[in-house]
Design a binder for these strands. Structure first.
Length: 376
DNA sequence: AACTAATGCAACCGCATTATA
DNA sequence: GTATAATGCGGTTGCATTAGT
C-alpha cells in the first residue's frame, strides 16, 4: 500500500557504484545473503539505500548474469515474447536465461524497437504500418485484425491465468515421457496421462512452434477458442483484462456450455470434455506456460486428441526443451475443431495462413538483418 | 583537434503489489 | 480488516562513450 521511503534519507550516496562498493556488497551477500535489503547497507558498510543495493545486485553483481551482445535467438525471443505479452520485461526475462529485465528493456528500447520501426513494423502492435494507396489494404487490415485477435486472445488468457493462478494446481511429472494434467479441485489425485513424443521444438519459441504447427497441419484454418484450463472451461467472457478492447462474438457463439468444467484428469473416468469440442481426431493446440514465470508464456503445439483411449491421447508433440519444471505449468489446452474452422475464419475475416505469413515475414526480416546490417 | 549529436546502459523514481504485524 | 513495510516492476533520466562533422 504505502510507498516506502527510500533514498530520500540524507547522507546516502547515489549514482554510479564504485568497485569498492561493489566488493562490499558482493562480500556481504556471499557471506550472509541479502536478507532484508533495507537492513543490508549499514551491515555491509555501505552508504546506500537498500533499494539501490538490491538493484545493483540484481542487475549487475549477481553471479548468474550474462552480459554482452544478445544472440539472434535471444533477439527473436524478445520480439516474440514482446508481441505476446507486451512490456512485461520481468516476465520476458524469465525466459532469457541470465538476462535481466533491465538489460532486456534497454536492449529493446535502444535496438529492437528501432529495428522494427525501420522495417516498417510498429514495435508496439507488431504489425506492419499502414501504407496508403495499397490496393490490398483492406485485405491486409482484415488479416491484421485477425492476427491481433489471435494474439490478444492468447494474451488475455495469460492474464486471466495470473488472476486464477493461486487457485490452480498443476501436474505431476514423475515420468518425463508422460504428462499429467490435474484439475484445480483435486491436484493430489492421479492425473490423466498423455503420452508424448520426444521434444522436438525449441522451448518457448512461440513462433517456431506456430510455424511447426502450420507445417504439419496446413489445412486447418482457425481455432475454436474454447480453452480447457485446469479444471474449468473458459470462454472469452471469462477473461479479465483491463487492457482488452477486443470482442469475440463469433467465437463465443461457438463455445459449448460452461456449466461443466472441462477436466482432462485421470481421476475422472469420464472426462468432462464436451463432445462437441473434443471429438476423435480433433486437432488440439497445447498451450503451455511456465509456472515459474510471473507471466505465463505460451507454447503452441498440436497433437491429435483421441477421446476413445484415455491412455493414449497421444501423437502429442511437446515443444522441445520443456523441462519437468516447465511442465509443472502445463495447465492449458487450447482446442480447436477443424470442422468449425471455416465458419470461424469467415467470421473473423482472416485465417491462420495469413497470420503465419505475417510472422514469417517479420522473422525473415529480422533474420536477414543482423544488428550490424545497414538496414538497422 | 574541437565541438556536437547519437548511442548505450546503469541507476533512479515512483507506483503497484505482496507480506506482515 | 487495516496500516505499514518490503519488494517488484516499468518508465525515465543522466552520464560516459562513440561517431560524425
Amino acid at each position: 500500500m504505502g510507498r516506502s521511503p527510500c533514498c530520500e534519507k540524507v547522507g546516502l550516496k547515489k549514482g554510479p557504484w564504485s568497485p569498492e562498493e561493489d566488493q562490499k556488497l558482493l562480500t556481504y551477500i556471499e557471506h550472509h545473503g541479502h536478507g532484508s535489503w533495507r537492513a543490508l547497507p549499514p551491515k555491509a558498510g555501505l552508504q546506500r539505500c537498500g533499494k539501490s543495493c538490491r538493484l545493483r545486485w540484481t542487475n549487475y553483481l549477481r553471479p548468474d548474469i550474462k552480459r554482452g551482445k544478445f544472440s539472434l535467438q535471444e533477439e527473436q525471443s524478445i520480439i516474440q515474447l514482446h508481441a505476446l505479452i507486451g512490456n512485461r520485461w520481468s516476465a520476458i526475462a524469465t525466459h532469457l536465461p541470465k538476462r535481466t529485465d533491465n538489460e532486456i528493456k534497454n536492449y529493446w528500447n535502444t535496438h529492437l524497437k528501432k529495428r522494427l520501426t525501420k522495417l516498417g513494423i510498429d514495435p508496439m502492435t507488431h504489425k506492419p504500418r499502414h501504407h496508403h494507396g495499397s490496393g490490398s489494404g483492406h485485405a491486409k487490415d482484415a488479416a491484421n485484425i485477425s492476427h491481433m485477435a489471435q494474439w490478444e486472445s492468447a494474451r488475455l488468457e495469460a492474464e486471466a491465468r495470473l488472476v486464477r493462478e493461486s487457485k490452480l494446481q498443476v501436474i505431476s511429472t514423475t515420468n518425463p515421457n508422460q504428462l499429467l494434467i490435474s484439475s484445480s479441485s483435486d491436484a493430489t489425485h492421479q492425473g490423466h496421462v498423455i503420452n508424448k513424443a520426444p521434444p522436438a521444438l525449441p522451448c518457448l519459441d512461440v513462433l517456431r512452434a506456430w510455424q511447426g504447427t502450420w507445417s504439419t497441419k496446413p489445412t486447418v484454418r482457425n481455432v475454436n477458442s474454447t480453452i480447457i484450463s485446469g479444471g474449468s472451461m473458459m470462454s472469452m467472457d471469462d477473461l479479465e483484462s483491463p487492457t482488452s478492447t477486443l470482442n469475440f462474438p463469433h467465437i463465443n457463439a461457438l463455445n459449448p456450455p460452461m456449466q461443466n468444467g472441462v477436466n482432462i484428469n485421470g481421476i475422472n473416468e469420464n472426462p468432462v470434455v464436451p463432445s462437441e469440442v473434443l471429438q476423435d481426431n480433433v486437432n488440439v493446440i497445447y498451450g503451455c506456460m511456465d509456472a515459474c514465470a510471473a507471466t505465463p508464456a505460451w507454447f503452441v503445439e498440436e497433437g491429435t486428441f483421441n477421446s476413445g483411449n484415455d491412455e493414449e491421447v497421444g501423437n502429442v508433440i511437446m515443444p522441445a526443451g520443456v523441462s519437468n519444471i516447465m511442465m509443472e505449468g502445463f495447465t492449458d489446452v487450447l482446442v480447436y475443431n477443424s470442422s468449425l474452422a471455416g465458419e470461424i475464419s469467415d467470421n473473423a475475416g482472416g485465417n491462420f495462413e495469413e497470420n503465419k505469413s505475417y510472422w514469417d515475414s517479420i522473422l525473415n526480416l529480422v533474420n536477414a538483418s543482423p544488428s550490424g546490417s545497414p538496414v538497422f
